[in-house]
Write a protein that binds this DNA or RNA. Structure first.
Lengths: 127, 127
DNA sequence: ACTTACGTTAACGTAAACGTAAATCAGCGC
DNA sequence: GCGCTGATTTACGTTTACGTTAACGTAAGT
């Protein structure tokens, strides 16, 4: 147990460059351990990287991702902070639901286009 | 009918700057008519702008958006081109479905976090 | 006539997210 | 000890998507 990874292993696993991973560290999105000056990534870091890349695919900036990723490892203990935390969670959820609406609309339109096109193609090839 | 809009009307309607709209024109994403040197946007342009901004929210680059938006106004007439067109539509749909999966996963995780947090908060305030 | 509010082109600036090149260092196999 | 591989840091370059500034024209309201 307690798997660790080198920078190259993670880079290959997620198809990013080592430069990118170091950049994420510089930006405070990852914080691997060190063996001398070599980085040692734990599964915690691996999970984080996965979250980061997913966030990117969804069009979030690294700053936004930093906030989101931060939520995964620090549910606050104090009541007031916890309430704020829950508020933030709900905001994030609302954003994602907006994006999902955007996607669903686009999908519906693409489907309509495809249907028309397939019908038109049938007409053409029927002759 | 045959509504038209000024650059300012569109800018206000979609909360972008006029600079942005001109930039999109430079990039070939919009092609308004002219009255002298003033731009005249038709509802076609309005629709396109809406599509562009939706694409941006989803994290597509302007180059990708250009391709996508182009699909809305040019279902090709020739059979071979039409087949290729349908292929492209399906690729785009697959991309969007991938994004939706990303969103759904994230939503599920946020929901779990929220549930935990709410429970924890209940504990805290019960005392 | 004056203001304001909009329009124009052109050029330059900027933030984000890395890429790339250069130089160095550390461990392994022989 | 030598060369290879893969790690490191440092630093400058690049692309995308605009913003900003300059410098000006035009048209409507008062």
């Amino acid at each position: 147990m307690s798997q660790t990874y080198t920078i190259r292993e993670l880079a290959d696993a997620f198809d990013v460059t080592t430069r990118t991973i170091r950049f994420y560290e510089d930006e405070g999105l990852l914080s691997p351990l060190r063996d001398g000056q070599n980085r040692i990534f734990r599964s915690r870091d691996r999970v984080r990287l996965k979250l980061i890349l997913r966030g990117k695919r969804l069009g979030f900036t690294l700053a936004e991702i930093k906030e989101i990723v931060g939520m995964y490892d620090a549910p606050p203990g104090e009541s007031g902070q916890l309430t704020l935390f829950i508020e933030k969670l709900r905001e994030r959820r609302a954003e994602l639901e907006d994006k999902r609406r955007d996607i669903d609309e686009t999908l519906a339109e693409l489907d309509a286009l495809e249907e028309q096109s397939v019908a038109r193609l049938k007409e053409l090839t029927a002759k």
